[in-house]
Design a protein around this nucleic acid. Structure first.
Lengths: 347, 347
DNA sequence: TGAGTTTATAAAACCGGTTTAATGTGGGCT
DNA sequence: AGCCCACATTAAACCGGTTTTATAAACTCA
C-alpha cells in the first residue's frame, strides 16, 4: 500500500502538505491540491486508518458493549442496534461490537485500551456494573441503555423506558380485567430493568388496594436456558402447582410463546383460562399468533438512536454532563388478554 | 493515560523491554517482568490499541459489511451475526459493523483504508460487486456469505446454502401436492441468491416435465418498501388478477405474513385455497402462527460461524486460496401447505 | 521602497507502540 | 586464562500519519 511519503514524493511536495490536502485542516492552493490528488489517485493511496487514529487521537468508532459470555442477540437488541447503526451511519461513525471473552481479556498480552472513542453499554447490572466502573475510571465517554445502578445513576448519561410505569400499566390492565393472581416471569435478576419492572408490578397492586401475591415473581436465570425454554418450564410448573393463577406477564416474545406452549400442554385455553401479556411487541408478528399476543411496544430502535445521538453529541462537545432520556412505550392489548373465566373473588 | 514510556521510566527499564513483557514476543527474566507489571499496575497502564495496531500491522478486528444505504438487519442477519460474534469471541477478535453512508465515504477527508484485518461481505451483488472488487484490489482478506457473481467466484472464499437446490425442493414439494400455478416472491433482483432461487424454481418445473408459468416470478424492490408490505401488495395484486394461483413462496417470514394478510383481505383460506411457503424458518415462532407456516430452516448462525472461522483461518495462515463451504438447510413443511382444493388440471 | 503582515509550503517533532541491531555479562569449554 | 557463545537488555529506527514551528514568497501600505 502506498504511503503518504510516496504521494508526497510523486507530487513533489512534503508530507505535511499531502496531509493537509486530505484533512482539509489547512488551506492548500488549488493547483497543489490538484497535483496531490492526481498523484494519490495514480498510486491508489488511502490514508492509513490506524496511523491517522494514533496521531489524531480519534477513531470515529463507537463501541456497543453487550454483556459478556457467549451472549446472543435477541430481537430487542437487533432493533436497538439498527437504531444505533442508523445514527452512526448518518454521522460517519463505525460500530464495534464488543464481545471479547473474559479469558482473552484477562491475558496480559491482550490487555489494551479499547479502540473506540466512546461506548454504549447495554443491560447495566443492578449491583455496580464493572464495565461502567471501568469506563468512568479510564475516562471513556459512555452512554448506558437502561437505568444504571443507583451509585452510577448521577454520573452517567442514559436512555431508558419507564419500565416501572410500564410494568405497572400492564399489571393494572390485568387487575382491571379482574385478575388477582398474576405470575410475572421477569428478566434475569441483578439487572436494573428487572428491579424496575418488579417494582412497577408491586406498585400496581398496592395502588389498587391489594397485596401483591407472594411467590409470583420469577427471574429468568442469567444463563443456561433460553427464554422460550424458561417460559415453558416456569409456566408449566407454576400453573400446575397454583391453579389460582389466571394471568402471566412474560419478559419477551419467546418467553410468551413458551407460556403458550405450557398452556397448551396443560389444556388451558388462552385467553379463556389464562391471559398472557408480553413485555415486547412486533406489529406484524404478534397479531398473527393464535391468539394474537398482547404486548408492550418498546421502540428499541428509538432507544438505540437516542443513545447513539447522545454519545456522538458528547464526543463532539466534550461535555459529559449526566443526561437522561426516557423513550415512551405503549401497551398494546390483544386477544391473549381477557377477563378471567371465573372471577376468583366476587367480593 | 500513561504511556509505555512512563512505565519504562518507573520500572527503570527501556521501552522495548516493557513492550516485550506485554507482547511476550521475547523472553524477559522473571524479576524484570514482575517489576514492569508492578509499575504498569501502579500507573493503570494499558497499551494503546492504535499505536500497537500501527506498529504491528494487525488490529484483531474483522469487519461485517452489509449493503450500503440505511439498511436494516432482519432476523436472518441477526442469527448470522450471532454466529460470527461467537467465533470472534472465541478467537479474540472484535467485530466492526460497517455501514458508512456513501456520502461520507466519498468525501476526500473521510477516505481511508478500512480499520480491519479482514472482512465478511454479505449479500453479494449478481453483477460484479464493487465491494469485492475493492477488497481484491487492495488485498484485504475477505470471505463472502452467499455466492459471489461468476467473475469473482473463483477468486474468493465463500459460504452459502444450496439455494438453487432448496428452491427446487420447495417448488417440487408444492408441485407434488398438485399445485401448478405457483407465485414466487423472490429476494431483490441483482443478488446472486435471487438468481439461484429463481433457477431452482424453474428447474423443478422442468424436471417435473412442466413449463414454469410465465410472469410468476417477482422480485422485492431493492429499497423503498418493507418485506411485509411487499408481500401484501404483491400477493394482493397477483391473487386478484390471477385466481389460478394456488400457492406462494415468500422470501422470508415477514413477506409470508404479508401474504397471510393479503389472503385474509381477499377472503382466501390458508391452506384451503392458498398454500404458503417461506424461505426462512423459526422453530419457535412458525408453529404458533395460524396456520403454522411452512419454511426453510437456514441455519444462518452456522453460516456466520463458518464464514468467521474461514476468515480467521485465512488471517492466521496467510493462505487466501478460494474455498467454498455449503451449509445444509432443511425444508420444514407445516400446515400452511396442502393440496389445492380444486385440482386445476385433472389431466 | 522597505518594514510589517499575510499566506503557502517545508522541515521536524510527535503520537505510542514494535522490531532490529547493538551492547554488555556471565558461563562453559579447552 | 582466553575465547566463544548464549542471553537479557537497551538504544535507535520504524510504522504512517498529524501538528507545530520555521521559512520563503507575496501582498499591504505608509
Amino acid at each position: 500500500m502506498a504511503t503518504i511519503e510516496d504521494v508526497a514524493r510523486a507530487a513533489g511536495v512534503s508530507k505535511g502538505t499531502v496531509s493537509s490536502v486530505f484533512s482539509k485542516k489547512r488551506p492548500i492552493s488549488k493547483e497543489v491540491t490538484e497535483r496531490v490528488l492526481e498523484a494519490a489517485r495514480g498510486l491508489n493511496y488511502k490514508p492509513n486508518y490506524w496511523a491517522r487514529s494514533l496521531a489524531s487521537r480519534s477513531t470515529r468508532i463507537i463501541g456497543l458493549n453487550i454483556r459478556g459470555e457467549p451472549y446472543r442477540f435477541g430481537p430487542f437488541h437487533l432493533a436497538l442496534m439498527n437504531g444505533v447503526l442508523r445514527v452512526c451511519y448518518e454521522h460517519g461513525y463505525r460500530l464495534l461490537v464488543n464481545t471479547l471473552s473474559p479469558g482473552y481479556l484477562s491475558q496480559v498480552e491482550n490487555l489494551a485500551s479499547d479502540p473506540v472513542d466512546g461506548e454504549i453499554i447495554l443491560d447495566p447490572s443492578a449491583k455496580g456494573d464493572a464495565r461502567i466502573e471501568d469506563r468512568l475510571a479510564s475516562g471513556t465517554p459512555l452512554v448506558v441503555i437502561g437505568r444504571p445502578s443507583a451509585e452510577h445513576e448521577a454520573k452517567v448519561s442514559y436512555v431508558d423506558h419507564d419500565n416501572a410505569g410500564l410494568a405497572a400499566g400492564v399489571t393494572r390492565c390485568l387487575l382491571e380485567l379482574g385478575h388477582r393472581d398474576i405470575l410475572f416471569l421477569n428478566a434475569p435478576e441483578l439487572r436494573t430493568v428487572a428491579e424496575d419492572r418488579a417494582h412497577g408490578y408491586r406498585e400496581a397492586y398496592r395502588k389498587a388496594g391489594l397485596e401483591p401475591p407472594p411467590q409470583r415473581l420469577l427471574h429468568k436465570p442469567e444463563r443456561g436456558t433460553s427464554s422460550h425454554q424458561f417460559g415453558f418450564d416456569a409456566a408449566s410448573a407454576m400453573l400446575e402447582r397454583h391453579p389460582a393463577i389466571t394471568a402471566v406477564i412474560a419478559d419477551n416474545e419467546m418467553m410468551a410463546l413458551g407460556v403458550y406452549k405450557a398452556a397448551e400442554s396443560l389444556g388451558l385455553s388462552i385467553p379463556g383460562e389464562l391471559s398472557v401479556f408480553a413485555f415486547s411487541d412486533d406489529a406484524v408478528l404478534f397479531p398473527e399468533l393464535s391468539p394474537p399476543l398482547a404486548g408492550v411496544r418498546q421502540h428499541a430502535e428509538q432507544l438505540g438512536m437516542e443513545a447513539a445521538a447522545m454519545l456522538i453529541e458528547q464526543l463532539r462537545s466534550g461535555n459529559s454532563a449526566a443526561r437522561r432520556t426516557l423513550v415512551p412505550a405503549e401497551l398494546v392489548p390483544r386477544a391473549s388478554c381477557s377477563a378471567p373465566a371465573v372471577s376468583p373473588q366476587s367480593v
